[in-house]
Simulated assay, not measured.
Amino acid sequence: MRIDPYSLELFIAVVEEGSIARAASRNHIAPSALSRRMADLEAAMGLPLLIRSPSGVELTEAGRHAFSRAAAVHDQLQSLAREVQSLSGEVAGVVRLFANASAIVGFLPERLKVFQARYPLVQIALTEQISDEVVRACLEDRADVGISANGRIPGALDSWPFANDPLMVVLPPEHELAGVQALTFNDVLRFPLVALQAGGSLDQILKERAAAARVPLKIPVTVNSFDAQCRMVEAGLGIGIVPTSAASAFAGSQGFVRRPLDEPWATSRSLRLHALRKSPRLRAVQALIDTLVLCEG
């Protein structure tokens, strides 16, 4: 039985995409060729791994087991390649960076440009996740570096300041709160809110603060991105609470008024950089940490 790493990588892509066609597009291979690869893999395993239907693919029981082991083997091979690359005379390889949306929107583009200029042989594999998942990925060694707004950092992680990113209120110019220069959370709670990313750090803190104030949140619509949130506010569906980074990126037009959220927990909000505690780290990983921390200063 011969199973090559490329077939395992394609199998993982098929499972993650739920479709042979989408996995083929993602890996720049013809669907027919990918389908043959999956058939050959199943023949090598001696059992069907996929249930195929017009709507996509699902895993068989054997397929679920194979996927778990294939993902582990793929990670080990990637780690092997990264470790060997780190032994060369140059800083090179792939760094897995997980970050929350406000870090990606507000700070990372410019800082990664600085990093790229210094280390052109390093590739950044960037994944957007909510803050809790960023921390979890670092703990499970699925991410080399993470950036989150999570205030509770497990002891197994090293952590550094990344950026200050206080919360702001965005609202249409004609809103009755537009004339107030600094808004309290009680001011905001009187009106409908356009909510963002259920389960994210911002969603959690707003729910906690509303519960502490014993005032229910009025949420007519929930969206999954800052640009969608600002568009909904612009359309008059509610007001929004967003990080300053997002307010600068998406609410800079004349269609918005931006006001500070005048609460200690809002003005002190910050982002932090995390990495699993290791000694030594891969050179490319350490170079990214050093660059991002230096840029913060």
Rank of each mutant, 00 (worst) to 15 (best):
P109R: 15
P109K: 13
E110V: 11
L112K: 12
F115I: 03
Q116G: 12
A117S: 07
A117C: 11
R118C: 04
R118G: 12
R118D: 09
P120F: 03
P120I: 07
P120G: 01
L121S: 14
V122H: 14
V122G: 06
Q123D: 03
Q123T: 10
A125L: 09
L126H: 01
T127N: 13
S131D: 07
D132A: 13
V135H: 04
R136G: 04
R136N: 07
R136H: 06
A137H: 15
A137I: 00
C138Y: 02
L139W: 14
E140M: 12
E140S: 15
D144T: 04
V145K: 11
G146A: 00
G146D: 03
I147W: 06
I147N: 10
S148P: 04
N150Y: 12
N150P: 00
G151K: 15
G151D: 11
R152C: 09
I153H: 12
P154V: 02
G155S: 13
G155P: 06
L157H: 02
L157G: 10
L157V: 01
S159E: 05
S159T: 15
W160V: 05
W160E: 03
P161F: 06
P161S: 01
M168V: 13
V169T: 04
V170R: 14
V170T: 11
V170N: 01
L171H: 07
L171K: 05
P173M: 02
P173Y: 01
H175I: 04
L177F: 12
L177K: 14
A178T: 12
A178Y: 06
V180A: 11
V180L: 07
A182M: 01
L183R: 07
L183E: 02
L183D: 00
F185H: 00
F185N: 00
D187V: 11
V188C: 09
L189A: 03
L189I: 04
L193T: 05
L193P: 02
V194G: 02
L196E: 01
Q197M: 09
A198H: 08
G200V: 03
G200M: 01
S201C: 09
L202W: 13
L202T: 15
D203I: 02
Q204W: 08
I205K: 04
I205T: 14
L206A: 08
R209S: 11
R209T: 14
R209N: 13
A210S: 11
A210W: 05
A213S: 11
A213M: 06
A213V: 05
A213G: 05
R214H: 10
R214L: 06
R214Q: 13
V215L: 07
P216H: 11
P216V: 15
L217E: 08
L217Q: 05
L217F: 01
K218Q: 07
K218G: 10
K218T: 13
K218W: 13
K218D: 09
I219Y: 01
P220E: 04
P220K: 06
P220I: 05
P220N: 02
T222G: 04
N224M: 07
D227G: 07
C230F: 12
M232S: 14
V233L: 09
L237F: 15
L237R: 15
G238K: 11
G238L: 10
I239P: 08
I239K: 03
I239W: 02
G240L: 00
I241K: 07
I241G: 00
I241R: 15
V242E: 11
P243H: 06
S245H: 03
A247L: 10
A247N: 13
A247V: 02
A247Y: 10
